[in-house]
Amino acid sequence: MRLYLKYASIILRGQMQYKVSFVMSSIGQFLVAFTTFLAMYFMFNRFNSVNGFTFSEVLLCFAVTLAAFSLAECFVRGFDTFSGIISNGEFDRIMVRPRNEILQVLASRIEFTRIGRLLQAVLMLIYAVPTSQVVWSSDKIATLVLMLIGGFCVFSGLFIIYASICFFTIEGLEFMNIFTDGGREFGKYPISIYGEGVLKFLTYVVPIALFQYYPFLYLIGRTDNVVYMFLPLVGVIFLIPCLAFWEIGIRHYKSTGS
């Protein structure tokens, strides 16, 4: 962790060399997320509710997903640009340093400009938490925290899988964005509105619904089943196969010619 901070400080110092660019991209990130928020706001202005969920409920759902995604993105973004790290040979360098590879990959690309998006998510949470008509008892707060942790882990796991695929092929990974960025977009609304099929897929294959939909039902009082509260922890377990896949990938690492 201390080393991660050192990396962070050196990258921050590097990015600060281009001050204008830094400020502009932070603002840009903020605006992108903000427009989605506006779109949702105007839609609810006309329709009042989606599939039985009110605007403030959906907003809470969206805020949680966005916060989890932004956190994952802020810290685990290194994996997103991993194909670049492999194809320009940077990974060779990582392999000859006596530290865990994952830590090094994470630390090699820390995106401070994502703070704009994280800020947006925090603002939305601040707005959504009091307006959601949820009675914030201690178990509800715990649920919210678990949702954030579970979401962070699931998105991180997805980024790791994304990166591990790079060991086998260095091209055409865009389809993985369906799960990462797509997951974020899906996560705007409670998963059930997409229908049974999508819900099953996002429960058993890519466990996005586990940290988003089910605990969310518990949060807004649609169910009293306490099990739903702890489902985000499955998201944490999701990391294990992801990391195993990563290890297999490293054995297959081919490096690039030089």
Partner: peptide
């Protein structure tokens, strides 16, 4: 690796 750098590009060498 003669063809690749291991130094961080934007910061003074001593920071690396």
């Amino acid at each position: 690796f003669g063809q690749r750098s291991q130094l961080w590009w934007d910061v003074p060498v001593v920071d690396s």
